[in-house]
Write a protein that binds this DNA or RNA. Sequence first.
DNA 1: GCACTTATTGTTACTTTAACACCAATTACC
DNA 2: GGTAATTGGTGTTAAAGTAACAATAAGTGC
Lengths: 234, 234
Amino acid sequence: MDTTGEVGSFFKSAFSVDNVIFGFDGGDLKVLLIQRGQAPFKDKWALPGDLVYPNEDLDTAAERVLEQLTGLRGVYLEQVKTFGAVNRHPLGRVITVAYFSLIKISNYTVTPASFAQSAKWHSVDKVGDLAFDHNEILESCLRRLKRKVRTAPIGFELLPPKFTLTELQQLYDSVLQLPKRLDKRNFRKKILSMNLLVECPEMQEGVAHRPAKLYMFDREKYLQLTNEGFVFDI
Amino acid sequence: MDTTGEVGSFFKSAFSVDNVIFGFDGGDLKVLLIQRGQAPFKDKWALPGDLVYPNEDLDTAAERVLEQLTGLRGVYLEQVKTFGAVNRHPLGRVITVAYFSLIKISNYTVTPASFAQSAKWHSVDKVGDLAFDHNEILESCLRRLKRKVRTAPIGFELLPPKFTLTELQQLYDSVLQLPKRLDKRNFRKKILSMNLLVECPEMQEGVAHRPAKLYMFDREKYLQLTNEGFVFDI
DNA sequence: GCACTTATTGTTACTTTAACACCAATTACC
DNA sequence: GGTAATTGGTGTTAAAGTAACAATAAGTGC
């Protein structure tokens, strides 16, 4: 979290939100971090976050942090856990509510005007030593994502609207980091048997090999099936 | 949560913990509620909770609330979700961190001296209209319990140390509230095949029918198997 | 001893999962 | 234009797990 400005030790208690923003570029799973411009933890990498305004809902604060950094609205956002150890913040008592969000990395343009800090994507397993208890927060959100991505169709939030089955599988492999990669044939069978993907008329372009079919996630269909008792599971 | 004493509208923001204390008596799943002695929501039933002390960790506060009400320590406790809508508390900005705990209902003696309020067990699906947003909090904790009880051996926390397989199954039936009860033979096969239960030498006593074998949960064995990759699943 | 109540046990059909290999389509390069 | 290189796409089978199902055993109360 970011205690912007001259926040001294005068405050007695406050609450903040911190947002673990995940993205996927075809390789590793990435997380968007900012480099702190002031003490404490000056120059350290940290999760984007902010104090919650007095008249602001928690979820709204998390959305605001996300929008200020990325310009994006209406993205997937989920509360994960609240961190409230007495000494987690060196300047006072601050408990922080951790969220994670999933964005399409191509929608994000680096260093928007709204944030002065340098923001950068880091591979989730190469983030190094973060400010505050942010390593712990990141771990919690990553564990939550690993579970949730198997039981709800949220992986699509990390991909462009049209994607190939290989891309989808690479996403699952990156997020889950299982000892063995998912089996290509079994994965395709399973995901297609759910009838949640619609085939696009056009094909993949610009690749130096056989082009793949493009698919889109059919959210309407998912909601309909869910009402009928369907449970997403990979 | 409980703003004990003369807490007026003077405070700007604060945080509290609320604890959904579950118990099981062989019939329905129960939750321990207190009847509020003062405004707001005077005489309404509410979740036990309290403001978090300035030098107190969140988890510690939740443990304290539990101990003050029940006298119990070292019980299963899990953070679930934080509720922070601007107007959730009529006297000011209070965000609350919801926990649930699982206790052996026989260990709890009604109305201990430490709490003046009347406290009472309620069936989880007959709690009526609770103070604050406590119905919503209870729902969240119940959903979490339903999921968690299938993937971690926490159901045993609700039973006495020695229990019959029928009691264990009734517990699962009560918590899960599935459209159909679990199948007796399949349930026994599954739970016994995990090798987490040890048979006690003595039998059930005081029942007017064939007495059942008593079992205990073997926590050591569970931890050992978990290290070897075992995943609890019912 | 008989009625009553709950405890205990096994088999089978079905569904799901895991393991596995080859041909097809396109581009890049010679 | 042919060939190497790369990724796309597809089906079968054995094994494991799940779900459905009913009869006998061991006590108590009368």
